[in-house]
Design a protein around this nucleic acid. Sequence first.
DNA 1: ACTTTGTATGCGCATATACGCATATACTTG
DNA 2: CAAGTATATGCGTATATGCGCATACAAAGT
Lengths: 110, 110
Amino acid sequence: MARKAPLSDEALELVARRFAVLSEPMRLRLIQALFEGERSVGDLVAATGGTQGNVSRHLQTLTQAHVLARRREGLQVFYSIADPSIFRLCELVCGSLEKSLTRQADVFAG
Amino acid sequence: MARKAPLSDEALELVARRFAVLSEPMRLRLIQALFEGERSVGDLVAATGGTQGNVSRHLQTLTQAHVLARRREGLQVFYSIADPSIFRLCELVCGSLEKSLTRQADVFAG
DNA sequence: ACTTTGTATGCGCATATACGCATATACTTG
DNA sequence: CAAGTATATGCGTATATGCGCATACAAAGT
């Protein structure tokens, strides 16, 4: 995207969609819970405190976006992070936010 | 975020908000148009093909999120990218999407 | 086949937000 | 101070999406 030809409208929609998938706190919570590795839905429900239905829906969204991978084992379904770029993305945003907030704090601190 | 303590609810909201700001094609178009440097609102309106009001609103959103910086010079207002992490973010997402799409294409190509 | 356990999904509501339109504000010039 | 130019904003509407609730589906055991 940087220093290349401008992206087509379709490409922009895809990129926007990608960011949209990551723009919900509950989904970020799920991703965060999966940083350490594969987990079942029930496990994720317990870890995030969400309702079963809602968690399942968000997992579906993330899977359709190819952020997560799905694997069935008997009664349980295990989800895991399928796109490793997620790690860098979160690091980048967190780092950027830290700087931004530190700067704002400095304004008050003088 | 990775391999650290889980983020607080407030932190997750901030991260989500950050991604949300980047989840609109029009805003990505504006960001893309600013990759080469500072530009005026009128310039951006022409470059993106949006209406003046809409472009102005999106610029406001991006500025409040500290993604862009604003500078007035006479009648014109110039916007520029304030957060350099945007470059990496876009690169990461684009790269990830390329891989994802290539993989999907390979399924058809065999 | 029935029950139990784990997961997914249809539906309705409430909320958020992008857009177009018109208008207001900021600044410059005559 | 009036007119013109550049940008911002109030408002209404259409659409999207997150959530809770109930229920459907899938797989395993009895």
